[in-house]
Amino acid sequence: MIKGIIMVFIGVFVAPLLGGLIAGVDRRLTAWFQSRYGPPVWQPFFDVIKLFGKERMVVNRWLVFCAHVYITAAMLSVVLFFLQSDLLLILFVQAVGAIFLVIGALSTTSPYSQLGANRELIQILTYEPLIILAFVGIYLVTGSFRISEILVQTKPLLVSLPLLYIALCYALTIKLRKSPFDFSTSHHAHQELVKGFLTEYSGPYLALVEIGHWYEVVLILGLCSLFWATSWIGIIALVGVTYFCEILIDNVTARLTWRWMLGYVWPMGLAMGFVNLIWLHGR
């Protein structure tokens, strides 16, 4: 019970701090890759606190509603993760947030927000099957969708699920909105949709979305960590290397289009996942 409470506490409070820190490190590393100096690592926290202090300005009250639902769902999914719950359930709860974020953006009459939201839906469309396949792979190895079952494994999942891990990394890149998949909204400026589906979220509501994003980052990196959950060193190494590669890829690719994503990532990711599943079946 006490362990559960601690886990909930970690999920609610520590996770966003971690997510913010990751975002800060990300920005710092990106700057280094670009031969820049970069902002301090706690910059994301300044951003969010500043946003909370800004004037409330809305286009539409649905936006406010949706931002709150988003952060609730994002938080809940992380809590469920730390409670070592069912993977599919976590995904579905996470999807509640993602979908409400999109619905909020769609509820405005702003064309950029609308286009961004549509693109975000395409991103959801692309990453969700990949994540589900990864979970199915985990199930085939452990015999359960529960995270608690994964943690009792003695062999890292990565050994039996290498291709699915790559597929999951695709999903991770899409979810983090890193280049080449940063087309629904972008961390960098100079995007054809300005800020995509985040265009109309402003001030405190943008801050909520930002925190929600941190939760999601923690969640998805947590999912990655499951692939080497047998030791702490494994977790840190795997997540570290994965995230480093994400930043690297972000910096060595151009932004591509959603048509390309559907035509390339989908077949590639699904095929890799499928091959991996067949191979598990064959064992």
Partner: peptide, 20 residues
Amino acid sequence: MFDMTPNILRNFFHKSSTRL
């Protein structure tokens, strides 16, 4: 693919060119 990598890594392992 990833032809930018050498440039990026070169930047990463050198001092940043920023004038503070």
